[in-house]
Amino acid sequence: MNTDAAAVRLWPAMQFRDVDAMTAWLRAIGFTEHATHRDEAGTVVHAEWLWPGGGGLMFGAVRPESPLQPAGSGAVYLVTDDPDSVFDAAVAGGASIERAMVDQDYGGRGGSVRDPEGNHWSFGSYQPGAEAIP
């Protein structure tokens, strides 16, 4: 199984009410911009931001024709080697703590927050399915 970033085939998709505020928050926790496409009015219609550990997030501004869930109702689990620093950066950037960082019974360390728009983010060092990756 190929596990490099180009082979990641699962990308969460979200929509944001305030794309500028959320891109600043994403940058603060470690995401990097790969592509951001805007329409003629300047509205973000499709963006791809990469996570340094692999994969990324696709998002756009809330639009009436969007098939996505209401803004603020998404949930993401983000695997990182240093969940404490990502958690701290998320809170410093305006997220509210849902569950403090703790060592998990099933392995790894993790905690969760609500981003400035209300989406649920969990940060952890536990890699689901890691034992299945050769």
Rank of each mutant, 00 (worst) to 15 (best):
M1K: 04
N2G: 11
N2S: 15
A6K: 08
A7W: 02
R9L: 06
R9S: 10
P12H: 03
A13N: 05
M14N: 03
Q15R: 06
R17I: 13
D18V: 09
A21Q: 14
A21R: 14
A21W: 03
W25L: 07
L26G: 11
A28V: 15
G30L: 07
G30A: 02
T32V: 10
T32A: 15
E33C: 11
H37E: 13
V44C: 04
V44E: 00
V44G: 01
V45A: 01
E48V: 14
E48F: 04
W49G: 06
W51V: 05
W51A: 11
W51N: 06
P52D: 00
G54W: 02
M58H: 05
G60I: 05
G60D: 01
A61I: 03
S66E: 00
A71Y: 08
G72K: 10
A75S: 15
V76K: 12
Y77G: 04
V79Y: 14
T80C: 09
T80D: 02
D84C: 08
S85I: 10
S85G: 04
F87V: 08
D88V: 13
D88H: 06
A92C: 11
A95C: 13
I97P: 00
V102W: 02
V102M: 13
Y106R: 08
G107N: 07
G108P: 01
G111T: 11
V113Y: 01
V113G: 09
R114M: 07
D115N: 06
E117H: 07
G118P: 04
G118M: 10
W121P: 07
S122L: 13
F123L: 15
S125G: 00
Y126D: 14
Q127C: 08
Q127M: 13
Q127W: 05
P128K: 09
A130W: 04
P134H: 11
